[in-house]
Design a protein around this nucleic acid. Structure first.
Length: 912
DNA sequence: GCAAGGTC
């Protein structure tokens, strides 16, 4: 890029208008700088001449406003009912410029055509790099010959900017790839789960939100859900917490010099008798002897320079402003030029920053102007170069005032937030407060007590940072050996009580777990309120709503950590790997999406957990009448128990004692039990079922919608019957088999499979007495992934053999050796082809055996101390579980008080 | 009607 010659046109693009303006001003030194409008009213175009390494350039400097493009599914997948949500894991996606960014794109189109170089001035983080590639895509489309260069800068400071433009580098594809991967994963997970849970729950329950029910969306997102998780988890901790009364002894002493409060050095005791005995000893011998007097100088340091999260936390703590409101006000202040860029992770100033100039700006302020003057006066010794918190996003400095604002100009919130920014900045460059601390220890009847007092010797930064105080109480002076009698000696009680999560706590949790960015954390919090997942009280404390709690509970009962931050943390780790070239984008995408799809499919199989959790808090709606899992189809011929279990089988509710089952064709995609009764099948009543089949899995000539015409008293109804009269159903079972256990899963029952199945069709299965499969393949016995033995409980020893209840091969009784189930006996099949597994004690509880799920703990994780009911769940192939009684709530008890007679929603103690 | 990330 070196060398003189003809002037070339260089298109420069920054991430936001303010950066374009600042860079243009610095490079042009405000000499010959022209400004004109582009197609977008916000994004001006600056023009000036500049030489890059001796090459004369005509510079055109413009900007985008953040991302120029959006990722979305192709049109045919965008409607909610256009496809199965599971398809969204492989549905084609594309990046397009949305309508509201088209004017920026037009500007780039026009300007790029007449330029030879494109210099990218996007923020120097991963998102910035990704935006750089969006700009490249747009510009290259109209000008293939553009030379692409990237300017790297970490602050809008003269030297930094000149250095950046003289040392242009290549854009970093890895950084951009990491963001591409994140976008795609977020989109696919978010859309699939949101559609799934909204369509599953919205119409089945009377969710009394403030919104019009029609627009209710039960969204899922990899940031919003862990944020909700933090709130629910704390709420559960509070519910599980048993308030404990404790006792403590307090001792005060008043003298001419003042009063000292001595704290018991044991802190507090939970044992009342013990506390009383000690207290009585003190009362009988109340003379205190001073055993130790210690004096120390203590420093209290000012806070680090202000990052976004810290601004939000402090505004919440000091002014009870929501993080969302804080960011809105900060944005206004930034736009008006009063404070620096408000979205920054950086909490240390660059050594090149002219801090003195910033302080000088504040000298004229009527309230803190005199403090600023003192700071600048070397004679006061008040100045101190600020220390840093060790965070630097390499894109923006800490938030600081950029120009002088006299209060009360733009409403109260603006003024107080500006005041916080200024006072915080002035505090950062000030000396710490200095205090003299005195600690006195006394002995009363062998018990030790201590009191401390503090005298502030120099307030320093505390003079300007009025939001912080340093509790300075003065205590009388004491000497070792001195004796005195207490003024008061009391035995006091207290109760342990964990607090709800405040907004500042929540931000800390998110920050720690890497949920969201400084620019989006407040959005995630707001989203929880908008979606009616959580509420915030006047003290900025968060509680989950019934809806929020039910959703988290549902996933938790499945044993998934979809509501915990781990998923996001893992993703963040992978993104980091992509951004440094250790992993490829394709590899991370394939891996993550495969896992998430498996998780999604599993969650859908276990959707009954979500339904159960919702039914704890919400009434079922009328629309639910024909949709619920566990509907009765007919009386069981063997034992008079009955149940419509899941989509694919009609099984007896008395399983495993009774194994009577009717299996439906594998090509069934929907099965809804109607309230209509078959007129011909006996013994009745047999409720009719509306079937829908997958087109490509049934032969031509069969309708995907299968209803048998039945004339009832008042209407002409069409439904399928499992009572034996339904010829179409019988034929489809003959042709397609009962496919729930096909290794290929959905769609595997093809013509070629029928050849294999025709061999087994003639023999009746020993379990369900049906033809169409072998006993070893009987779908009435639960199965999921094969070869999963290695994931079962750790084996200690083989015990006596019994017949396997799944595939017929011998099964052994074993003893678990895991932390949660040590010593518990279970049956597991010896066959490598079968992964049947059943706890011995669950047989009596009525819980079914199940397959050991791949890659999962043998016993889903449980929250401690919530008095939850027995284990009724598990995972199987295309089936759902109910408890022995058919009551999904059996065995549960109230989370609040533990009483089995009611649930938390009806608990008289709830909310106290 | 869905995510999270930029930004006005």
């Amino acid at each position: 890029m070196a060398g003189g010659g003809r002037t070339i046109n260089v298109l420069n693009v920054a991430e936001k208008p303010s950066v374009a303006k600042a860079v243009a001003a610095i490079l042009s030194r405000n000499q010959g700088l022209r400004v004109r409008d582009g197609r977008s009213r916000y994004n001006k175009i600056f023009e000036f001449d500049y030489a890059i390494r001796g090459q004369p350039c005509h510079m055109l400097m413009t900007s985008v406003t953040g991302h120029l493009m959006e990722l979305d599914f192709e049109d045919r997948y965008r409607k909610w009912h256009s496809c199965d949500p599971a398809d969204l894991y492989q549905a084609p996606v594309r990046k397009i410029v949305p309508e509201d960014k088209m004017d920026i794109k037009r500007t780039l189109d026009e300007e790029a055509r007449r330029c030879q170089w494109l210099v990218l001035w996007l923020d120097c983080d991963r998102e910035g790099e990704n935006i750089a590639f969006e700009v490249i895509e747009v510009c290259r489309a109209v000008n293939h010959h553009l030379v692409l260069r990237r300017a790297r800068f970490s602050a809008l400071i003269d030297r930094e900017i000149h250095q950046a433009v003289q040392n242009l580098v290549d854009p970093n594809q890895w950084f951009a790839d990491a963001v591409d991967a994140r976008q795609e994963i977020d989109l696919r997970i978010g859309a699939s789960f949101t559609r799934f849970q909204t369509m599953l729950l919205k119409d089945r329950f009377c969710i009394d939100s403030a919104t019009e029910d029609r627009n209710l969306v039960l969204s899922y997102g990899p940031c919003q859900f862990p944020t909700l998780g933090f709130i629910v988890e704390r709420y559960w901790e509070i519910q599980a917490h048993e308030p404990e009364e404790f006792w403590t002894i307090n001792f005060t002493h008043r003298s001419d010099e003042g009063i000292a409060t001595f704290n018991w050095m044991r802190g507090h005791l939970f044992d009342y008798t013990c506390a009383v005995i000690i207290y009585e000893m003190c009362v009988q011998e109340p003379t205190a002897t001073v055993t130790k007097v210690r004096q120390q100088e203590k420093l209290k340091y000012p806070p680090y320079p202000l990052s976004t999260i810290e601004l939000e936390k402090r505004a919440s703590r000091y002014f009870r402003m929501s993080s969302e409101q804080t960011m809105k006000v900060a944005e206004d202040l930034y736009q008006a030029g009063f404070i620096s860029y408000p979205r920054t992770e950086t909490d240390c100033f660059s050594v090149r920053t002219d801090l003195h100039a910033m302080v000088q700006e504040q000298q004229g302020h009527p309230v803190w102007g005199s403090y600023a003057q003192r700071l600048l006066d070397p004679g006061t010794g008040l100045w101190r170069n600020p220390s840093g918190g060790g965070h630097d996003d390499k894109a923006h400095p800490p938030i600081h005032p950029t120009s002088f604002l006299l209060g009360n100009q733009d409403g109260v919130k603006t003024t107080i937030l500006y005041e916080l920014v200024v006072r915080h900045f002035l505090a950062c460059v000030s000396q710490p407060a200095v205090g003299a601390e005195t600690t006195v220890e006394i002995d009363v009847a062998g018990e030790l007590f201590s009191a401390s007092g503090r005298v502030i010797l120099a307030r320093n930064y505390l003079d300007v940072y009025r939001f912080e105080s340093w509790g300075g109480s003065v205590i009388p002076s004491y000497a070792v050996g001195q004796q005195f009698i207490p003024t008061t000696l009391t035995l006091d009680s207290g109760v342990t009580r964990p607090p709800l999560l405040s907004e500042a706590d929540l931000l800390s949790c998110m920050d720690k777990a890497g949920i969201g960015t400084d620019a989006t954390m407040h959005d995630h919090i707001k989203k929880l309120l908008d979606r009616f997942y959580a509420t915030k009280d006047a003290n900025t404390r968060f509680s989950p709503t019934n809806l929020g709690e039910a959703l988290v509970m549902g996933y938790d009962d499945m044993g998934y950590e979809l509501w915990k931050p781990n998923l996001r943390s893992t993703m963040e780790y992978d993104m980091k790997e992509v951004s440094i070239g250790n992993k490829s984008k394709a590899e991370v995408l394939a891996n993550c999406l495969q896992q998430m799809k498996a998780c999604f499919l599993d969650a859908r199989v276990n959707k009954v957990k979500l339904l159960e959790a919702m039914s704890i808090f919400f009434e079922r709606s009328n629309a639910d009448e024909h949709h619920a899992a566990g509907e009765i189809v007919r009386q069981c011929g063997n034992c008079l128990e009955s149940n419509m279990d899941g989509k694919f089988m009609v099984g007896c509710m008395a399983f495993p004692q009774c194994r009577n089952a009717v299996w439906l064709p594998g090509s069934v995609s929907e099965a809804i039990v109607t309230s209509n009764i078959c007129n011909s099948c006996n013994p009745g009543p047999v409720y009719l079922i509306q079937f829908k089949f997958r087109r490509h899995e049934i032969p031509p000539g069969f309708d995907v919608n299968h209803w048998v015409s039945v004339v009832t008293e008042s209407l002409h109804m069409q439904s399928g019957c499992i009572g034996g009269c339904d010829e179409t159903l019988r034929q489809l079972i003959e042709i397609c088999g009962t496919g729930s256990r096909n290794p290929g899963g959905r769609g595997a029952t093809t013509t070629s499979n029928n050849v294999r199945q025709s061999d087994t069709r003639q023999r009746a299965c020993i379990y369900c007495q049906q033809t169409g499969h072998s006993s070893g393949d009987c779908p009435s016995q639960f199965s999921g992934s094969r070869n999963a033995h290695s994931h079962g409980p750790n084996l200690q020893s083989g015990e006596s053999s019994i017949p396997c209840t799944s595939c017929g091969t011998p099964c052994v009784l074993r003893i678990a050796n895991t932390a949660n189930n040590r010593g518990r006996k279970f049956y597991s099949c010896q066959s490598q082809e079968c992964n049947f597994f059943l706890w011995e004690d669950d047989i009596n509880n009525g819980t079914r055996g199940r397959s050991i799920p791949r890659g999962s703990a043998s016993n889903p994780g449980r929250r401690g101390g919530r008095g939850r009911g027995g284990q009724t769940g598990g995972r199987g192939a295309d089936t759902t579980f109910v408890s022995a009684t058919g009551d999904p709530l059996s065995g549960r008890r109230c989370y609040v008080c533990g009483d089995p007679s009611h649930f938390a929603n009806a608990c008289p103690n709830r909310g106290t």
